[in-house]
Amino acid sequence: MADVILELALVLAGIGVLLASYRLLKGPCPPSRAVALDVLTLITIPLLVGAAVMTGRAIYLDVALVYGLLSFLGVVSLARYFEKGV
């Protein structure tokens, strides 16, 4: 029962990935695509933690941790590029 609800939640997040990637591929201006990248990162972090919980190995959490830190760096460098070009 709990496993089924958990998988349902992850599939719902997967539909979110589909919608955000629509904005990513269509996006009229580059900052819109950057927002879509931000949202995709924020959806992927729970997906990574969910994969770790369903597998039961603690090392997988570190991937989510590294991703949460470094994607911030990527988005901030994109913002800096849009403002005055790196």
Partner: peptide, 16 residues
């Protein structure tokens, strides 16, 4: 720039 962002998304999903 769009190509750079798309490459970032590719590496994001590949990491998952």
């Amino acid at each position: 720039v769009a190509a750079a962002i798309l490459a970032g998304v590719v590496s994001l999903i590949v990491s998952y």
